[in-house]
Nucleic acid binder design. Sequence first.
RNA 1: GGCGGUGUAGCCAAGCGGUAAGGCAACGGUUUGCAAAACCGUGUAUCUCCGGUUCGAAUCCGGACGCCGCCUCCA
Length: 472
Amino acid sequence: MPIFLYNTLVKTNQEFKPLHDGKVLMYNCGPTVYSHPHIGNFRSFLFADTLRRCLEFKGFAVTQIMNITDVGHLLEDQDEGEDKMEMAARREKKDPRQIAQFYTDEFMEITGLLNCLPASKYPRATEHINEMIELIQKLIGRGYAYVVNNAVYYDITKFPGYGKLSGNPLDQLQAGARIEVHPDKKNPMDFALWKHDPKHAMQWDSPWGKGFPGWHIECSAMSAKYLGETFDIHTGGEDNIFPHHECEIAQSEGASGKKFVNYWMHVRHLLVDNEKMSKSKGNFYTIKDILNKGFSPMALRYLLTSTHYRQPLNFTLESLGAAQTAVQRLLDFRARLQEQALPAPDGQPGAETISCVIDNAITKFENAMDDDLNISEALAAVFDFMREANKLSLDKTGSARLLATFDRFNVVMGLKIEEKGLLDSEIEGLIRQRNEARKNKDFAAADKIRNDLKSKGIVIEDTPQGMRWKKI
RNA sequence: GGCGGUGUAGCCAAGCGGUAAGGCAACGGUUUGCAAAACCGUGUAUCUCCGGUUCGAAUCCGGACGCCGCCUCCA
């Protein structure tokens, strides 16, 4: 069955058809590494991961490129504002490169904690300055850009398609509404490809003198290098639609004369307690904030991915708690299947019954994901599947089949499966003592040991098939 | 001013013309030595409000109200 994806470019669902059979070329706008990533950032990155997983579930081989923005980006106007890297560097009394490295490391760590599959490559902007310069030269050569005072600007009037992604009619944009229009620009909406500012800490040599790249050029340069001039999918947060992605299109299509991206996908910003997340409102959470409160990374992953990516997910600590419980149920279910700890092989269902449960679930799950990643409906299929499975008495083969099915769903859900590991001898000894006590009907002693074990993070469950334990 | 989204039970959230999925929480029950897990059952949801279209609307149209996004560097 084909998968349908919502394409911002045409504002509707389209059947996904890759450029090359069975392969997907995808670029995700990644982090700007100047501060701790927050839950909103990771809604976007987790969407990219889920999309990639979903495409792999569908059988595609995905090449995934996620950029690391480690340069530039002024907070205000180009010659006056503060650079994020520099500001962070001053705040933390470090070199801008150290800042970038520190937050890149943190980003990679969190990516792992949240069980994101590693992208094929994480190219850094600062390692592709030459590619950017070449691209800018190409744009100048083709008449799309002009040089003024050691800087280069893109001449927006040369690219009639400007505005096609965002739907912003050029003549309606309020140029200068938020920032002053730079006097060197021919048109108010022209944007910088290469900037000149002697005060800037990070400088590179260029044909136009020392300077640094504009914000948008890195994605055009790096996507072309790793994916080609035309590729399948480009993702980002909804705020990237304009101006960032609009400018990328102008740059890439201006330089290549070819279509840049076939499918543009954008993630809606999340809300916290039904309001925009902001530091001043006190509802601003970094990923580390959440984990430090004791929530599991998988609970966070589940919550951030379980709402459709184009809906305004409302993040609350209460719903994060609910997510944690739901994840626990999913993982417990899988563990029981793996241990074949479901009810006794007594009146086992036929293979046909099991097939029916599996086929229903897979059909419902896949149909949901095919519909522009309707994850909520897909998860409903998983929970229905789990309930049906829990009712069955299973033998080894049945358990294995259900386990394989769960793991197929988990290709998309991305829950980290921890190996149970072994118990240390002290714990094993306690468990033996408890079993002995129970055998002797000394329930007081048995319950005391059970409580002791719980305080050590080991939960004991007595089932008709015997005792089982799990770590919490 | 221009462009756009959204409002569904205590909380989160699907459904987008045929009469309300799923998760969490809560309350009963089965099971258990007691638990846990699991299973079964329980939710009168004025689908923000007011009009309209339709045999029929949470779903389409108009209006009101709330919340939110973009309009040059915020995912």
